[in-house]
Amino acid sequence: MKAESVEMDDLDRKLVSALRHDARASLSDLAILLGVSRTTVRGRIERLRDRGDIVGFTVVLKEDAHRDAVRGLMMIGIEGRGAERVIRLLNGLTSVRAIHSTNGRWDLIVELGTETLEDLDEVLGRIRRFEGISASETNLLLATRKAS
């Protein structure tokens, strides 16, 4: 059965936001927070999963959240049609926290996390040598004002 292609509405976005804050929240707690029934919450979660809007749940350990002393965003320009290959290579690096495709000047934005500036420099050098990367720009993250 193919899931329907429908945009998320305001309730879906509020539910996803609540789940990002606490993916273990009970249906009852989510229902109270959102002002809807438990049945509605359960149905919305199932629909979002069936459609592929929610692809999984994860655990973030305290040590994971605090381990990256140095964090950066690397914007990457890719030559031709090499994006999928570059993404596969990036996925193999332990310092890569997230990979985002984007429009505009850059093709990808990669979130990086390392223990030292020297480690970050080494990772940046490795990435810049990937075949298909035509340009890059990196910015260090100094402080996080809000995280999802």
Rank of each mutant, 00 (worst) to 15 (best):
E46A: 13
T114A: 11
I109T: 15
L93G: 07
H21P: 12
E118R: 08
L108K: 08
N91C: 03
A83D: 12
E137F: 01
L142S: 14
G77S: 14
D68S: 08
I87D: 13
L117N: 13
A65E: 14
T114D: 00
A135I: 04
L108F: 07
A31W: 02
T39M: 06
N103W: 02
S28K: 09
D64N: 10
G113L: 04
D10W: 01
R44Y: 06
D107G: 11
G125Y: 00
L30S: 12
R38H: 09
A18C: 04
M75I: 02
L89S: 10
T39Q: 15
V86I: 13
A31M: 06
V6F: 00
E7F: 04
R81A: 14
L34C: 09
L34N: 15
E111G: 05
S26G: 14
T114S: 08
I78R: 05
N139V: 15
G77P: 04
H66G: 12
I99M: 04
V59F: 09
R38C: 00
T116H: 03
R129I: 06
N91A: 08
L108E: 10
A69R: 05
L15S: 07
R129M: 10
G56S: 06
R85K: 08
V41F: 00
R67K: 15
E122A: 10
D29E: 09
I109N: 10
G56D: 14
D68F: 00
V60S: 12
N91M: 07
R67A: 12
L141W: 01
A69S: 13
N103Y: 04
E131L: 05
K146N: 07
A143Y: 07
L73I: 15
E137V: 08
A147K: 14
R128V: 03
A23Y: 05
T144M: 02
R24I: 01
G104W: 08
G72T: 03
L108S: 11
V110F: 00
L15I: 08
T94L: 01
E111M: 03
V110L: 07
D10E: 14
K62R: 11
L142H: 15
L140H: 04
M74N: 04
L141P: 02
D50E: 15
D64G: 03
D107S: 09
G35M: 07
A3Y: 02
G125W: 00
I54E: 10
